Simulated scan of single mutants.
Amino acid sequence: MKLFTKTYSRQQISLLVTLSPASLFLLIFFVIPLLIMLTYSFLEPGLYGGVEWNFYHWNYGRMLGWADGYYEEFDIVYLDILLRSIGLALTTVLCTFIICYPVAFWISSLSEKKKSLFILLITLPFFTSMIVRLYACILILRDSGFANQFLEWMGIISEPLSIMYSNTAVIIGMVYIFIPFMFLPIYSSVENLDKKFIQASEDLGATPFTTFRKVIFPMTLPGVLAGSILVFIPSLGNFVIPDLFGGTKVLMIGNMVEQQFLYARNWPFGAALSMIITLFMLILLTVVFYRMKKSPLNS
């Protein structure tokens, strides 16, 4: 009994030593900054930037509808930008899923050497700066870019398409950047598929569509949800891609936060916008994890 207690204590100490660096890192660079942002979101904005240490809940009211109407005015444009950001992020998730799901099955059916090659090609963009990749994409999409030149050469169009500085350009840019985040979780789920369930479904007379709907898709759903979360979260808060591909025509909530901190110098309102994004993401993650826990596959 004493030996078991002594061994268990050593395991606890080993676990504590192992997790301490990561826990300390998260505390310093995630928890404390998050608490600072939460505190700033309830403070009064300073006249020339910064904050005044007075309780000031109008930062949220300015966006959600309970502004005092004197110093702060409620403007529906903030909710419109938030809803547009959610729509663009969801569209990005859908587009990456449509591209990655069949590709994951195709790659999983290849030989081991070819699998390694294609996975390397998919992850290769991680070795290049995101800004470099985005500017390369701009060279393709702009009015005089390769895409328009190719379409004109093929006779499909007679004049250049105005793709840049639109919702379409922003979605293309985000899909281009975040495809690996969707592909890798889906591919992992596809690789771990138990072929016995598929064979059993076929032996019982199920059609290919029924097998996919009842067996394959539910078994790969954890990977789909993981990839969707990994794509949705950075897409919703992204400000670099909308800034380069959308210009002044496509404003997302991440651009609003950037403007409040860097240009308007209204730190409390920028912090309030950030906390609203964070709260929305936490609610979304809670719902997704709850549904995954209640899934028949986990019961």
Rank of each mutant, 00 (worst) to 15 (best):
M1G: 10
K2E: 10
F4R: 08
Q11N: 06
S14Q: 13
S23R: 05
L27N: 00
L27Q: 03
I28V: 15
I28Q: 10
F29P: 14
L34E: 04
M37S: 14
T39F: 15
F42R: 03
P45K: 13
G46H: 14
N54W: 05
Y56P: 03
M63F: 14
M63I: 11
E73A: 12
F74I: 00
Y78P: 06
Y78W: 15
I81S: 08
L82N: 04
L82Q: 05
S85R: 07
L88H: 08
V93K: 02
T96I: 04
I99K: 02
Y101R: 02
F105Y: 10
F105M: 04
I107C: 03
S109W: 03
S109Q: 10
S111D: 08
K113E: 10
K114G: 01
I122H: 01
I122P: 07
F126W: 05
S129N: 13
V132N: 00
A136H: 10
C137Q: 07
I138F: 09
G145F: 01
Q149F: 11
L151G: 03
W153V: 11
I156M: 15
I157M: 07
E159V: 03
E159F: 14
I163Y: 01
S166D: 00
V170I: 10
I172W: 00
M174P: 03
I177T: 11
I179F: 04
P180Y: 00
L184K: 07
S188T: 15
K195C: 07
F197A: 09
Q199F: 11
D203K: 05
L204R: 05
T211I: 08
I216V: 15
P222T: 09
G223Q: 11
A226P: 06
F239T: 00
K249W: 00
M252R: 00
I253M: 12
I253Q: 06
N255F: 00
M256I: 06
M256V: 04
M256P: 01
V257A: 13
Q259S: 13
Q259R: 14
P268R: 12
A272W: 00
S274I: 00
M281P: 04
I283T: 12
V287H: 02
V288P: 02
V288R: 02
F289H: 11
M292H: 05
P296N: 09
P296M: 06
L297E: 13
N298C: 09
N298T: 11
